[in-house]
């Protein structure tokens, strides 16, 4: 955005600014090349593959748009995309509900020891996530705590498998997995709000609840936007968690891509990646439209 502005400012001027323009372009070449090689060349290759005829093990290099026609007209993919979105949306909302009070507590109620307490929320997540998933099996699995409890209470007769192999399990594991990535941005965000702002609101007559509503929550927008970009959008591509605990109802688009790739159907896998990428870009644009770029760095 700033580049466009910079360019238009420069180009609407005369010869004197031509040197400036050349400098501007030359100065930015290394950065462009870096980003190009690291990010856009791989994407271009992937895009090229998505345009080839599906064939096992190798890329056929016979170009066609059939894959796109197939993916974009097939209702199943939209259904799974919708399922993916739903799982991630529910998980993100629950994550915010769980994480925000933690971040608020650390930043406002315990500001002197907040940094150290923050470690306590991060350390448990340092444990290998496969182990944590299996820990959930002890609770949600067929012979797990939840089933045993429900049987002993007489609510169900036989153990149910839906607790562990379902979208519900996917949501729970995503929450467990990503909690610190939600707590930390909100914590940094809330800690950055000067104490005098709260004091001013209190001095002007606001109660704690009114301060939360009128000051703290609106000023949490940068944290929210960080969470959307750090957790929500990347998690749309999650495949490990649903393939381990998703079962039938917890199927996500990432599983599908994984399935095609493991069958060495690179072309369809690549096409589906772009299907998901388009959706992610769409969500990003909508979020930026709602919150504005400046919410990312300014208050």
């Amino acid at each position: 955005m700033s580049e466009e502005k910079g360019l238009s400012q420069i180009t609407n001027n005369t010869t004197k600014n031509l040197i400036k323009l050349i400098r501007y372009v030359l100065g930015n070449i290394p950065g462009f090349i870096y980003i190009l090689i690291m990010f856009y060349v791989p994407i271009a290759i992937l895009f090229a593959i998505s345009l080839t005829k599906p064939s096992k093990y190798v890329v056929s290099w016979e170009f066609t748009i059939e894959n796109y026609v197939k993916v974009f007209t097939e209702a199943t993919y939209y259904r799974i995309l919708w399922n993916t979105f739903l799982i991630v949306a529910v998980a993100t909302i629950l994550l915010i509900i769980v994480a925000y009070p933690i971040a608020y507590y650390l930043a406002r109620v315990a500001p002197n020891i907040g940094d150290r307490l923050l470690l306590f929320t991060i350390i448990p997540v340092e444990i290998n996530y496969l182990i944590r998933i299996y820990a959930w099996r002890v609770i949600l699995g067929e012979n797990g705590f939840l089933n045993m409890l429900l049987i002993s209470l007489g609510i169900i007769q036989k153990p149910l498998t839906i607790f562990f192999y379902s979208w519900f399990a996917v949501v729970i594991v995503i929450i467990h997995e990503y909690l610190p990535y939600v707590v930390v941005p909100f914590y940094l965000n809330l800690r950055g709000i000067p104490r005098e702002i709260y004091e001013a609101a209190m001095d002007l007559g606001a109660s704690r609840l009114q301060i939360l509503k009128t000051i703290t929550l609106p000023l949490s927008k940068p944290g929210l936007l960080s969470v959307i970009f750090i957790v929500f959008i990347p998690t749309l591509g999650e495949f490990a968690i649903p393939s381990l605990v998703g079962g039938q109802t917890g199927l996500m688009l990432g599983n599908l891509i994984d399935r095609y790739l493991s069958q060495f159907n690179l072309a369809i896998g690549a096409t589906l990646s772009f299907f998901l990428l388009l959706f992610s870009i769409l969500v990003s644009i909508i979020m930026i439209r709602i919150f504005g770029y400046e919410a990312l760095y300014a208050r």
Partner: peptide, 9 residues
């Protein structure tokens, strides 16, 4: 206040 503490939002 010294920092003025205006509500930036």
């Amino acid at each position: 206040f010294q920092s003025l503490a205006l509500f930036p939002n």
